[in-house]
Write a protein that binds this DNA or RNA. Structure first.
Lengths: 212, 212
DNA sequence: GCCTGTGAAGCTATTCACAGCT
DNA sequence: AGCTGTGAATAGCTTCACAGGC
């Protein structure tokens, strides 16, 4: 079993070196990579260990080969299609955010219950009625879904997705999903994150306890 | 120094019990709270320890008092105003997402460079030209900001925010920010998260190494 | 001198296990 | 019987420190 944290950082290293690749820079040192990804040099080296990639002592890591290595490691052999469920404000923003951003991950279908959204396209993907989800997900072999529906519906929708073959969910709904083993869930809880920022922005790093 | 993880979970517990409060349920057990927040019973009890809150052996935690305790712990004495920078698709979605959601956290101002967005209101907050940021941030005593600008501008904008008194940033830009100590940064990296989901959705939990 | 690769140490976070209570 | 509160144990992650190489 390979650690989630590592995968997240590998993804960030890859993004970090895109610019270097474009500029034609041929090598990076671990501490530079660390800066690009918000990590430490030691962590970069440790992460590289997981991929099996190794650099040169004098010049650091070969950018081009590192990019290849990370791609081979992170990406599926074939592009992975992604579905988005819940074409509200947030869902639409996510669709445009991811449009044309990835070679290997593309939102190919969206689903909603609102008839006004059905049959329209957003960021290059068509919105279908949610009732067609099972059919379309299975036909397109979609295993990755982004969930952007209101909290009360999230659990039920997620279960339907899993029924239809989805094995990984990026969950923007502010409720934890309870699904079987083997289903990977990555929650993005914007509300909790903002509250966290608000808390620490106050600098209250030694807070008195609040009642008993 | 109190752990980030704990604060995040406390926020989730609080959200979890909103429904219970509304339904008039008076008590919760730790394992129920755990379900509501995607944690474990032991973790809930451990987290309660840091708040100093304690429950009854027979009935669990008193919902009403727990809500009060969490509010006292998480919220500032007075409501905290929040600014958002970057009123693109994502920024606008975030603004509507947070509109009318919180008593204690409200987006009170937005900033952008695009003249077409300036002076319009989104989700109840007015968009100002970015040049007025320092002035407005200081006048409203804003210490919390949400950053939703394109990656290349993120670092420079963040530095301006910090100059103007911001001490906590929720960063949606897909680059790590390098700011001084005492500035709290919570990154939300949707791209890395999606890649993570895609990776684990494949079930490749024991992956061969990819070249040397 | 400054880099990588690496085992070990250190630290943080989570889980266990059980005493005490009702 | 089943709960909370709690110290101890475990697991997981990050950092250190240094050997080896250019």
């Amino acid at each position: 079993m390979i650690s989630q944290r590592v995968i997240g950082r590998l993804s960030q290293y890859r993004r970090g070196i895109q610019d270097l690749l474009a500029e034609g820079q041929t090598h990076v040192f671990s501490h530079q990579l660390a800066d690009l990804a918000g990590a430490t040099a030691a962590q970069v080296r440790q992460d590289m260990r997981v991929t099996g990639f190794s650099g040169s002592t004098t010049k650091g890591y070969d950018v081009k080969r590192l990019a290849d290595c990370l791609a081979r490691f992170l990406d599926a052999p074939a592009p992975q299609p992604v579905a988005l469920v819940g074409v509200g404000n947030l869902g639409r923003a996510i669709m445009t955010f991811f449009a044309h951003r990835h070679r290997n991950l593309r939102i190919v279908a969206a689903f909603d219950v609102d008839p006004r959204k059905v049959d329209r396209t957003f960021g290059g993907a068509t919105c279908y009625d949610i009732s067609r989800a099972e059919d379309i997900l299975q036909r397109l072999h979609i295993r990755v879904a982004i969930l952007a529906v209101p909290a009360p519906e999230a659990q039920a929708v997620a279960e339907r997705l899993v029924q239809a073959g989805v094995t990984g969910i990026l969950n923007f709904a502010p409720v934890p999903l309870h699904l079987g083993d083997g289903i990977f869930i990555e929650p993005i809880d914007m509300t909790a994150s903002l509250e966290k920022v608000a808390f620490f922005a106050r600098g209250q790093w030694a807070r008195v306890s609040a009642e008993a």
